[in-house]
Design a binder for these strands. Structure first.
Lengths: 139, 139
DNA sequence: GTATGATAGTCAGTATTACTGACTATATTG
DNA sequence: CAATATAGTCAGTAATACTGACTATCATAC
């Protein structure tokens, strides 16, 4: 089995854990929506930036943001310094959802670390970080 | 950045490499189709097995197999030992495509290993294999 | 200042991926 | 032989994602 497929297996397990925890907590968010939401910055982010970071087109990002907006998790406000742009930022409820999601991710990662032990867990992170530099150098 | 997201970044890089190499070689296959095709065994596989391994419903698997069949990469033959079932197996052209894909995956993995160095590459594989036992125990 | 090109975002249309539910046909088990 | 399980399909829908065309605004060069 190639390492990329092994990564996918673990990634999907994380995804399922997060999505089901969010659903239990009353947040009904899909994987793609979560992937966009995860990248919203403190003071709001532009659509194109979210799209680029999540590696989708801006049209796709637009649909996902619209869904999040409809659920009351994010809002779009005009960018004060650029009339073309709008800033996407969390609502209070969205902020709470994001915090919850982060906690779940950290919890699962903690489980993983306990399973792997400190040495292997550290090596895993180091290897993945190093790989990122190779495959995704500009970011 | 959480390790699961780092895994996704690397996984996607692999995906892109494989898909673009396949396209260059004249095979027009999508990611989801490749994920199903990758799991077809030597002597053919049943739809339900492919679906289970790729973690999709059998209806989804059916659509993906139909697409692969339409491209002439796989064929469905009746299962000689079970009248309900049909075996999905590679055509000659499909076999060649699968072999090419495996080569590309191995090539990219080789690049990754060279970037990481032998120790970290081995640790990465060990950690991911161990994680798989945690998150995907029955398989 | 104003024309030119770049950027932010939307709208329209389509393809792919994925789901649930209902169904047929065949196997297996009691 | 009846009851149940399994393999696969069909129908319908939703989510995700794409390309192409468009408007509005910004930045820059003249």
């Amino acid at each position: 089995m190639d390492v990329a497929t092994l990564m996918l297996i673990a990634y999907r397990a994380m995804d399922e854990r997060v999505i089901s925890a969010m659903r239990e907590a009353g947040y009904d968010v899909t994987v793609a929506q979560a992937r966009i939401a995860q990248r919203i910055g403190e003071s709001g982010s532009r659509l194109v930036d979210l799209a680029e970071q999540a590696q989708v087109t801006k049209q796709t990002a637009s649909v996902l943001v619209a869904a999040l907006e409809q659920k009351g998790l994010v809002e779009r406000v005009p960018d004060p310094v650029d009339g073309r742009a709008r800033l996407i930022r969390f609502t209070e409820r969205g902020e709470a959802a994001a915090a919850h999601a982060r906690e779940v991710v950290m919890g699962v990662e903690q489980e993983w670390n306990e399973h792997l032990g400190p040495r292997l867990a550290a090596d895993l992170r180091e290897a993945l970080t190093s790989l990122r530099e190779l495959v995704d150098p500009y970011r």
